[in-house]
Amino acid sequence: MQTQTLGFGARLALALTLPWRVLFDGRIAALVAQAAAGGPLALSAEPSPAPAAPEPPQALPEVVAEVAGPDYTSAMQVLAILQRDGRFIDFLHEDVAQFSDAEIGAAARVVHAGCKRALDEYVTIEPVRPEADGARITLAPGFNATQHRLTGNVVGEPPYTGELAHPGWRITRLSLPTLSPGHDATVVAPAEVEL
């Protein structure tokens, strides 16, 4: 048997699911142990014990998501939560041009109520500045430039005095549900089939 290499996406998927399978499938664990020890790889040659139920014949073609880079799992999880609770992806994926404002407004209530509930549950977001829009504020020398963006007539040295156009937002708490290992986070909404 020839040794083939896998693409990054497939490797990522394998890295995510393998620990789980090793933990709960003795056969896989034995094979991995064998491979790690430099033994001959025999994943396909191994005569597998007769499965209890036949595999479904019309399995969907395997889609390997191209999710590379750092761990994006929690980003995908946030999208899944917004879709689940607030139909966020459905809403953004619809062509709104053909609908009246009233129809879009009705749907927006679903999205607003659901996404707000989800956001409140998992994230606490506070304004960066406590003052209301339009308030006059002064930024002392050494002010936090990450928290403030200056526009307009930016001349001279601080202190700067100006009008608060937007009080900003910042996250003070973020707690997402724990995902079990092996969970395929790329499926942000499973297809629903009513039997």
Partner: peptide
Amino acid sequence: VIAGRGSRLIG
């Protein structure tokens, strides 16, 4: 507001 079940939310 009761959303339909399919992916078409607005209609």
